[in-house]
Simulated assay, not measured.
Amino acid sequence: MYKLIAIDIDDTLINDDKEVTPATQQALEEAITAGVVVTLATGRAYSSAQAVARQTGLNVPIITYQGAYVKNLLDEEVLYERYLPLEAASRLFEYCLEHDLHLQTYIDDKLYSREENQKLIDYTSLNNTEYFIEPDFAKLVAQPTPKMLIIDEPDYLDEIAPVLRELLGPEVHITKSKPNFLEFMHHEGTKGHALKFIAQHFGCDLKNTIAIGDSWNDHEMLEAAGLGVAMGNAIPALKQIADYVTLSNNEDGVKRVIDKFIFNRES
């Protein structure tokens, strides 16, 4: 019996209109009523993720910043946090300066950039995130952050990712949440690490957990969970490692998983 479900937000829980459909909302409520712990696991900042979680009626810890930050919705206690090593953050900043790359950081759950540009505007319009401009970016880089992010063309990010892995070392986890977002966290700041933490927090064996996602930043939690589910709209690489492929985010794919694996019914 599955007792815990961790669900990615963008392109998984919400459809292309950025909404949780009434059918999926009802399925979540049914699962919670049946005693299943339902949580979110997202690359978003806590401030952005908690708005979705509260809308959906969740009252448990949620996984944010790709797994680097787990915070309780009820009393807002931080249960798990892993910050990007400061030396690595400094190296990443210097690299981005040298190569004229757009870099963002998050301090105290606020998004900062060195300058306002179209990349920043497009990024923040995706989930209505407020942003702050700090020209003296070096002083921000010297502060603990759960995540830094480069925005650029997908092919170019694929080209520089191995270079940055070498530059930043094994203490840093690098992943993509979308083709043009390259994200940097502590090596224990993955959704897989956070799922293991949440399962332990609730006294739940990992084999009794389900993880649902669509992108490569979800692969660690799909591999850690008892049942790893890829959305119908997921990238091919995630579908290959998934135990099950559900319907897309526009076809209530999350509802299908709850119906099939929690309630043993076909939706």
Rank of each mutant, 00 (worst) to 15 (best):
M1A: 15
Y2C: 09
L4I: 13
I5A: 07
A6L: 03
I7T: 07
T12N: 03
L13E: 05
D16W: 00
V20I: 15
T21R: 00
P22G: 06
T24I: 03
L28V: 15
I32W: 01
T33R: 13
G35Q: 10
L40G: 05
L40P: 06
G43F: 11
G43V: 12
A49M: 09
A53L: 03
A53Q: 10
Q55W: 08
L58N: 08
V60N: 10
V60G: 02
I62Y: 11
I63D: 10
K71Y: 08
L73I: 11
D75T: 11
L84V: 13
A88C: 06
A89I: 09
A89K: 09
F93R: 05
L101Q: 13
L101M: 14
H102K: 08
Q104F: 13
I107F: 08
R114H: 06
K119W: 15
D122S: 12
N127E: 11
I133R: 07
D136H: 07
F137K: 10
K139F: 14
K139P: 14
M148F: 05
L149E: 09
I151P: 00
P154Y: 12
Y156D: 08
I160R: 07
P162R: 01
L168S: 11
L168Q: 07
H173R: 02
T175A: 14
F181G: 03
L182H: 08
H187G: 02
G192W: 00
F197L: 09
I198C: 11
I198K: 02
G203K: 13
D205A: 13
L206S: 13
A211L: 14
I212Q: 01
I212A: 05
G213V: 06
W216S: 15
D218C: 07
A225I: 05
Q240G: 03
A242V: 04
D243E: 02
V245E: 08
N249L: 01
E251G: 06
D252G: 00
V254H: 00
K255A: 12
D259R: 12
K260Y: 03
F261Y: 12
F263W: 03
F263R: 05
R265D: 00
S267G: 14
